[in-house]
């Protein structure tokens, strides 16, 4: 449950970052909204990969 909660919280944070990023980079709202899923998945994927590396990797 705790892991799910943290994953959910991380998703909210990544969604906020992706939203701001999309609306800053894109010229119009349609393009910003259209690019949001791609940015979210890419960002979330990178974040999860970094977390996994930090957790299972050589640092701990």
């Amino acid at each position: 449950m705790s892991l799910l909660l943290h994953a959910g919280l991380l998703a909210v944070a990544v969604l906020a970052i992706s939203l701001v990023n999309a609306f800053i980079v894109e010229a119009d709202d349609g393009a910003a909204l259209a690019s949001l899923p791609k940015r979210f998945v890419r960002f979330y994927g990178v974040m999860l990969a970094l977390l996994a590396f930090a957790y299972f990797g050589p640092f701990f």
Binding site: H6, L9, V12, A13, A16, I17, V20, N21, F23, I24
Partner: peptide, 20 residues
């Protein structure tokens, strides 16, 4: 920890919004 992260993230993202 999560709370501090979220609150600070909101402030820093507003910095990006202000640049826009």
């Amino acid at each position: 920890d999560a709370g501090l992260f979220f609150a600070t993230l909101a402030g820093l993202l507003n910095g990006l919004v202000l640049i826009d």
